[in-house]
């Protein structure tokens, strides 16, 4: 039987996790009653759903439909003149949602605020490009990497991947080495689909060694003619990986255990 692999998250996973492992959490503290962050919260009033301080920066959770309003308030009333970064996190597998964050900077107070909102899979978000021009590129990147549509963006187009690319690479469902389309992209584009057989599939095995390839590699120390067979009759062997032998110690029939008893 084939091993079950979850399809909704194909990223790296720990091969072993202790049964009783409970991940701790980075301490979150309440926003102090006095100070800059408290002022920001009072200015935002009802726009902020939840707020706390995590590792020195205030995190504000807001409603996704109000993102433009919140940003406008933060920029104009609280002095957050720079949007350092904005991007998304894919929580589709867990919650069916994307988490978007905006990292803002106030240079007069030297304070940073992170605004977080969540949207459903096929929802769009309002562009903050009229407020922060840096959002022009950043929102295009979000669209490219996650497929999140941004309303009222002046030029919403793929930015990092080519225009004719299929799929959004930073989704958790997208494997790191790419899908079928990605693996043949350059061959299809340059030579056409009929050359797939000539060129062959990509080599994704990082441990592959071609000892007898005289087409591409020369020999150090002694020269061999081009494309000569230097295997000296040795047949090709596939790499064999050693298998871990698991002993079930719970059964009483274990030979080693019997001996020990």
């Amino acid at each position: 039987m084939r091993k079950y692999v979850p399809k909704d998250n194909v990223q790296g996973k720990s091969y072993y996790t202790d049964r009783f492992w409970v991940a701790p959490r980075v301490p979150r503290t309440e926003v102090e009653a006095e100070g800059h962050f408290a002022q920001v919260l009072t200015t935002l009033a009802k726009l902020a759903k939840e707020a706390y301080v995590e590792l020195g920066q205030m995190v504000i959770h807001i409603d996704a439909s109000q993102n433009f309003e919140v940003m406008k308030t933060l920029k104009e009333a609280c002095g957050y003149t720079q949007c350092s970064e904005q991007s998304a996190v894919d929580y589709l597998a867990k919650d069916g949602e994307f988490e978007l964050f905006y990292q803002l900077l106030n240079i007069t107070e030297a304070k940073r605020v992170r605004v977080i909102c969540r949207i459903k899979q096929n929802e769009a978000i309002e562009s903050i490009e009229p407020l922060y021009k840096s959002a022009n590129f950043a929102e295009r990147e979000i669209f490219d990497m996650f497929g999140i549509k941004v309303n009222n963006h002046p030029f919403l187009k793929r930015i990092l991947m080519p225009d004719d690319w299929e799929g959004h690479p930073l989704l958790k469902t997208y494997p790191m080495i790419g899908d079928e389309f990605a693996s043949w992209y350059e061959v299809d584009k340059i030579f056409g689909k009929e050359y797939r057989d000539v060129i062959g599939p990509e080599n994704r095995d990082q441990a592959r060694i071609e000892r007898y390839d005289t087409k591409r590699f020369s020999r150090v120390g002694y020269e061999v003619p081009f494309d000569a067979d230097i295997s000296a009759g040795e047949t090709k062997t596939d790499i064999e990986y050693s298998e871990t032998v698991l002993v079930d110690y719970t059964k009483n029939s274990g030979k080693q255990l019997d001996e020990r008893r």
Partner: peptide, 8 residues
């Protein structure tokens, strides 16, 4: 060894 890189 990613989706975006030509493997050689």
């Amino acid at each position: 060894n990613t989706y975006a890189t030509v493997q050689g």
